[in-house]
Design a protein around this nucleic acid. Structure first.
Lengths: 138, 138
DNA sequence: GTTAGTGCAAACTCTTTGCAGCACT
DNA sequence: AGTGCTGCAAAGAGTTTGCACTAAC
């Protein structure tokens, strides 16, 4: 069974939830609610409020990760339970994944310096992707 | 006449702008509009919309840095033209500054790997401050 | 059959804006 | 004097919620 992730989390297995998960599984990068909605609606009728409720439920169960971005929209992604960071083009918003996280070592040091118990971090790089760079030079 | 940062930026030197700058200068950490407003209003009458307009004008001139945080509010801070990161307690929201930024070296490597021209990064740590930690153990 | 999920519209939070009047250079 | 600043209220974007209906278990 492919989507027993819903049942495991004691969530009912509905058409809309499967569709939302499917869209996010096939996306290489985090997606905002409006884009998830317009993707899903192509195949399954769904209201915007249901989109938000599904995203909230899945995030609460830890199935999705959510992140409020600088553009004012909340982005959702499948929680792969791997620690990831992203690099976003400031011109076209194209986003790619960064493989390594060099910060865990820093967290220990930070704890020694500040006394804070470090529970996490959020790191985002911004830049200009090769396509935009060549477009602006050409 | 003292060198005025407002005049240098071709902004009129008004009571409210001075008050906003004063509040931010005396704050160790970034502040959201609502808190800046309620601080300023203690000494200078001001509307909320003016607060936002002042913060927008000062940010546009590069006098302030703005950052939309995960709590949905935009935080403002004086632009010290130094690169800084912050560590925020997830329990009491107390925020302190981190001195060193270990990421510039990483940016070069990232450029080689991805082809992106790296223009910046945003890094936030979360944790539990010593006060909250002891409060929760007691 | 019971509980959880959904659609619709209204509400909510933070922020922005149009317009008329006021303050700074 | 003239332009830019400000207050008020209304609007805007993104998201959340109350209620009646529907679908999954």
């Amino acid at each position: 069974m492919k989507h027993n992730i819903l049942q495991e989390s004691h969530l009912k297995d509905t058409k809309r939830r499967r569709a939302v998960l499917h869209v996010l599984e096939n996306s290489g990068a985090p997606m905002a609610a409006d884009r998830i909605y317009s993707q899903v609606v192509k195949s399954v009728p769904m209201s915007v409020s249901t989109t938000y409720r599904i995203l909230a439920a899945l995030s609460e169960k830890g199935i999705l990760l959510k992140n409020l971005s600088q553009d004012g929209k909340t982005y959702y992604q499948i929680n792969s339970h791997q620690h990831k960071h992203y690099l976003t083009c400031t011109l076209c918003n194209n986003t790619i994944e960064i493989k390594d996280c060099p910060l865990n070592a820093l967290e220990d040091e930070l704890n020694k310096d500040t006394g804070y118990i470090i529970t996490g971090h959020h790191l985002e790089f911004t830049g200009i992707c090769p396509e935009c760079a060549s477009r602006n030079h050409g």
